[in-house]
């Protein structure tokens, strides 16, 4: 189908974009970033925005830079930017590994990191990454700037803490320790499909024991999150199969799984157990 009519606005500066957003948000105005989620739902006429504020020409939003503590990802940075190492830190390799699982190559040329977070599909790989690594979201409006912690940002299925006049201008991901290890796994029926469950883990090994462990689960609940119960079972353990299995079981039990016509709670828990265990396994060299 064809999208319904709209008026397109093409701001060149951030201030112009924020001005348009504050003026038009109340009149069914929306941001157009990569368009890889918005245009399909417009084609289905599930969304009929009256105004689109196209941020693809806004100067400065393509910033992808590390200050030694965190990697800043601007609102025009596309998934494909992570095909190469974005930063000389294990975080760079993590992002490259995860990016490959998002949609398909041509979609990664257009879709943006911040757009994925604003869209907040429960199965989004970048939402899982932001939740697991405790990202900071930088929301801007003509009223000012505020920072939102990842755990306060995702409020439910496709729902975030962003106000309707706020632009997610930048996301900051903390760099990992230089010796950090990471693992990721997701289950989907076909390559490029949204995951039915996914997991991202990071940790360090100090004196042979796992420490600073993070276990994130996505696609299984209304929003991705860290599962602290699973992290607690791993800290202080040597990385080994029994510990991984136990953590996966604990993570799966801790969830309140989404159900849909193909996936009941029991099946979703089984998937979570598998993806957490596999993420831990593939974190090992």
């Amino acid at each position: 189908m064809k999208p319904a009519p709209f008026v397109r606005h093409v701001p060149r500066t951030l201030d112009e974009a924020l001005g348009l957003l504050s003026q038009l948000a109340g009149q069914e105005g929306r941001i157009l970033a990569g368009g890889q989620s918005l245009v399909p739902i417009m084609a289905f006429r599930l969304a009929k925005p009256a105004h689109l504020i196209d941020i693809n020409e806004v100067a400065g939003l393509d910033r992808l830079e590390s200050d030694g503590k965190a990697l800043s990802i601007g609102a025009r940075v596309r998934h494909g930017a992570f095909h190469k190492l974005a930063v000389d830190n294990p975080l760079g390799a993590l992002l490259t590994f995860v990016a490959r699982h998002i949609a398909h190559y041509p979609i990664r040329m257009r879709g943006t990191f911040c757009g994925s977070l604003a869209h907040a599909d429960p199965a989004s790989e970048w939402c899982l990454t932001a939740a697991t690594l405790d990202a900071t979201m930088v929301a801007k409006s003509s009223r000012g700037t505020r920072e939102i912690a990842a755990r306060d940002f995702f409020e439910g299925i496709m729902s975030t803490a962003l106000a309707e006049d706020e632009l997610l201008a930048e996301v900051r991901l903390p760099l990992l320790a230089p010796d950090a290890k990471f693992g990721f796994n997701e289950f989907s029926r076909r390559a490029g499909d949204f995951a039915m469950a996914s997991s991202l883990v990071t940790y360090r090994i100090v004196g042979g024991k796992m420490t600073d462990t993070r276990v994130g689960v996505g696609g299984a609940e209304a929003a991705p999150r860290r599962i602290t119960e699973a992290e607690a079972t791993l800290n202080g353990q040597t990385p080994n199969d029994a510990a991984f299995r136990e953590a996966a079981r604990v993570a799966s039990d801790a969830l309140d799984p989404l159900e849909d016509h193909q996936t009941n709670a029991e099946y979703r828990r089984d998937l979570v157990r598998a993806v957490v265990r596999r993420a831990l396994e593939n974190s090992l060299p």
Binding site: A43, F44, I107, M109
Partner: peptide
């Protein structure tokens, strides 16, 4: 709506879905 890829073209050296 972005699923099939029949509409793929190259824009400024990037393969993209031209329906999106």
């Amino acid at each position: 709506h972005g699923i099939c890829g029949a509409c793929t073209v190259i824009i400024d050296n990037e393969p993209v879905r031209s329906c999106l």
